[in-house]
Computed example of a mutant assay.
Amino acid sequence: MDFLINLDVDDLEHAIAFYHEAFGFTLGRRFGTDGAELLGGPAPLYLLAKAAGTPAFAGDGRHRDYRRHWTPVHLDLVVEEIEPAVERALAAGAVLEAPIATQAWGRLALMADPFGHGFCLVQFLGEGYDAIATS
């Protein structure tokens, strides 16, 4: 089984530029003005143009809002060295939401993209998650 990653954005061109500048993703295909496929990670990243204020899904009273928001699903991007990755993301327009933290498994930077989506930059150290695995 494969999986795809889809992110709603309100400005497709800005999102393509951000994800290229911040993480080095390259444009694979365009789907008219409604979407773009970005390549460079373990799964394609699809950016879907959805206007702010449109319904999140049929019958829902909530509407898309691209201010910073919380969702239980987010991207973790694993990097070799966290400081240069954070600097690159910041230069592209990301926001660092907390200082870089070091855990038993590695280092973590909590960030947000310009479209309100949270993401984390992760640098594994030593055994990575094996350092905290219980089974």
Score class of each variant (00 low, 15 high):
Ala109Tyr: 01
Phe57Lys: 11
Arg68Ala: 13
Leu77Gly: 08
Gly24Pro: 03
Phe57Val: 01
Thr102His: 09
His69Ala: 14
Gly35Tyr: 07
Leu77Phe: 07
Gly61Ile: 04
Phe115Leu: 02
Leu90Val: 02
Gly32Ala: 01
Pro44Gly: 11
Leu45Cys: 06
Lys50Pro: 00
Tyr19Asp: 02
His117Ser: 08
Arg64Trp: 10
Ala58Ile: 04
Leu45Gln: 03
Glu21Asn: 10
Arg88Phe: 01
Asp65Cys: 14
Phe25Ala: 01
His74Trp: 12
Val95Gln: 15
Gly53Leu: 09
Pro42Phe: 13
Glu37Gln: 15
Ala49Pro: 10
Asp65Lys: 05
Gly116Thr: 05
Glu83Cys: 08
Glu81Ala: 14
Gly53Gln: 11
Trp105Tyr: 08
Ala85Leu: 02
Phe25Ser: 00
Thr54Arg: 14
Gly106Ala: 10
His14Trp: 11
Gly59Ser: 06
Glu80Pro: 06
Tyr46Ser: 10
His14Glu: 13
Tyr19Glu: 03
Tyr66Cys: 09
Glu83Asn: 04
Phe25Tyr: 11
Asp113Glu: 02
Asp76Leu: 01
Thr26Met: 02
Thr71Arg: 15
Ala94His: 09
Gly59His: 06
Ala89Lys: 01
Asp34Pro: 00
Phe18Tyr: 07
Glu80His: 11
Val95Gly: 12
Leu27Phe: 03
Arg30Cys: 04
Leu75Phe: 06
Leu38Ser: 08
Gly53His: 07
Ala58His: 12
Ala51Arg: 13
Thr102Gly: 05
Leu38Gly: 12
Ala22Thr: 03
Leu38Arg: 14
Glu80Ile: 06
Gln103Ser: 13
Ala112Cys: 07
Phe25Pro: 05
Gly93Pro: 13
Ala36Glu: 03
Phe18Trp: 00
Arg62Lys: 13
Trp70Arg: 13
Met111Trp: 00
Val78His: 05
Ala104Leu: 15
Arg68Lys: 12
Gly61Asp: 10
Met111Pro: 09
Leu47Val: 04
Gly35Lys: 10
His74Phe: 14
Gly61Cys: 07
Phe31Met: 03
Ala92His: 02
Ala98Leu: 04
Cys120Ser: 03
Trp70Tyr: 14
Leu90His: 07
Gln123Val: 02
Arg107Ile: 06
Arg29Val: 03
Gly24Glu: 04
Asp34Gln: 14
Leu75Cys: 06
Ile100Pro: 00
Gly24Ser: 03
Asp65Gly: 13
Glu81Thr: 08
Phe57Cys: 09
Asp65Leu: 10
Ala56Asn: 12
His69Gly: 15
Ala17Asp: 12
Ala51Ser: 12
His69Thr: 14
Ala15His: 03
Arg88Pro: 02
Met111Ala: 00
Pro42Asn: 15
Leu125Gln: 15
Phe57Asp: 10
Phe119Gln: 04
Leu125Gly: 14
Arg88Val: 00
Ala56Tyr: 10
Leu39Arg: 15
Val79Arg: 04
Glu81Asn: 10
Leu77Pro: 07
Trp70Asn: 13
Leu108Ser: 09
Val73Ile: 15
Val78Gly: 08
Phe23Ala: 00
His14Lys: 15
Ala92Cys: 11
His74Ala: 11
Ala49Asp: 12
Arg107Tyr: 04
Ile100Leu: 05
Ala56Leu: 14
Pro84Asn: 07
Ala91Thr: 09
His20Leu: 02
His74Cys: 12
Leu90Pro: 09
Phe115Cys: 01
Arg107Asp: 01
